[in-house]
Every structure is written in structure tokens, then in C-alpha cells.
Design a protein around this nucleic acid. Structure first.
Lengths: 120, 120
DNA sequence: CCTCATTGACTACGGTTGTAGTCGATACGT
DNA sequence: ACGTATCGACTACAACCGTAGTCAATGAGG
């Protein structure tokens, strides 16, 4: 299931607040994206078509919630990205992130803990 | 400069072997992708248009080479991906890769070395 | 009740992407 | 010198993407 960047914005809102309607999504996004409510409804419609969202009637409207878990999607996307971009090797990716200051000290601490786990 | 997935396949070949022509690219890709030579020429043409490749005449054909460094492009793409997908946090990405076996023992060793550097 | 705002369904439309065909020029084998 | 393969330039075209408009139904407010 392919989710485009614009659609991902919608998914992110719904992963944070499952079970809201289109206008609540619009409300949530209005500061970041200047999207017309129509645009949001189109994106939501496409996500429903793709099976990425489930619908639940609520009066004359629908409430939406993700049909896939955020973590599952992230994992698949991460693997695909690393494969395409780095031939499947993760270390160069992390090196680049470090180099472009993508890593905070907190990230580094997290990674250390993670590596400790992995070595076991 | 936006490079699409299909175009990236071309770039990867040329980053490995700069200065070859379209038919050599096709030769290189024929095992992985079943692309018509026309398709490859179209992709190469679009990359030249975008300024991602430079051309050098060689008889009646061109030799191509990347106009941007692989590392630079990877760095930019990695940052963009982490921003969009993980809100800029790298650690969850690495955790997902580890979970989906994206990390070989060698990767883990590399990461350890890298973290050692970063802590300094 | 009547008007107005809002909803989902459907439609629109220009740009991008993947995939490839056509065409005219040209090099290469015989 | 002639046919054939190959080159780059141009063209094609459907699917997808971002962005939004139209429409008919329906609910909310006076």
C-alpha cells in the first residue's frame, strides 16, 4: 500500500488522534499546511479507497481511523528507503544523519542503548 | 533537484561507473530491471535536463556522469526522509531497521564505531 | 419552515512518472 | 556503397498526485 507525502500528513494526524472527522483533521492541519478542506477530503477519500483508513458513520459524516499501525508503516518505509538509497546498509545512513546534525545528543544516547540491546 | 526512484537506479549505476554511455547503463541494469533501452534513454534524458548528469560527446553518442556527489544526495534524502517519516528523530528509524533485520552484525559494529566518534 | 453551512461523492485538471514508440542521422559490417 | 543497428531528439500516453470545484442531501439555526 503506497502512501504519498500529502497523504502521510493525514495519516500522521489520525495516528495521533484516531476517530476524528474530516473537519477536525483540517483544524489540526491548518497551521502547518494551507490546504483547502476539499483537498483534505480528497486525500482522505483516496486513503479510504486504498484501505489505509477505516470509516465509521457518525450521523451524516464519517469518523476515520488508520487501518495500519504507524510503527508497521514506518518499518516498511524505512526498509524500502534504505534499500533504494543505500543498498540496504544502514550504517551509512546513520553516518549521514550524524553529519547533517540530524542526531541530537538524546538520539545518540538512544542509539547507544539500542546497540547495547542488539549486541546481546 | 528531485530524483525519482526510477531515475535513482540510473544514478546509482553512474555513481559506480561514471563516464559511460546509455547502452552500458542498460547492460549494467539488465539483470535487475527489465527495462527497454528506450526507457533508459528517457530517464537519462530527464536527468540531463534536470542538471543531475553532465554529458561529454564521444563520437556520435554521449558519455554521462553525475553532476552531484552521491554522498551529498544521500545526505539530503536521508534528512528529508527522517523529517517526513519520523518527525526528525533518527533513533526510531534505526530501531525499526534493527527490528526488520536491516542491520547486519557488520552494520552494528560500524554504528558502534560511529557512536564512539560522535561522543567525542 | 426556510435558508445556509457542511458532508461525502463525483469530477477536473495540469504536472510528474514510468514505460516506450517514432524519426532522422550516422557508424559499421560486408 | 548499402542495409542494418544504434544514437539522441522528440512524442505518446496512462496512472498517479496535488489541488480544488460542483452537486445533491442533510442537518442546524433562526
Amino acid at each position: 500500500m503506497q502512501i504519498t507525502p500529502a497523504e502521510l500528513e493525514i495519516m500522521n494526524v489520525l495516528w495521533d488522534q484516531p476517530g476524528i472527522g474530516a473537519s477536525e483533521i483540517a483544524e489540526e492541519l491548518k497551521d502547518d499546511k494551507s490546504w483547502n478542506i476539499r483537498t483534505i477530503k480528497t486525500l482522505v477519500g483516496r486513503l479510504v479507497e486504498k484501505g489505509a483508513l477505516t470509516t465509521e458513520p457518525d450521523g451524516r459524516r464519517y469518523l476515520y481511523r488508520p487501518a495500519i499501525k504507524r510503527g508497521d508503516y514506518q518499518k516498511k518505509a524505512a526498509k524500502q528507503f534504505v534499500d533504494r538509497m543505500f543498498g540496504g546498509r544502514a550504517a551509512p545512513l546513520v553516518a549521514h544523519l550524524a553529519d547533517s546534525r540530524g542526531l541530537t545528543p538524546e538520539d545518540i544516547a538512544d542509539l547507544e542503548a539500542l546497540l547495547g540491546e542488539l549486541k546481546k
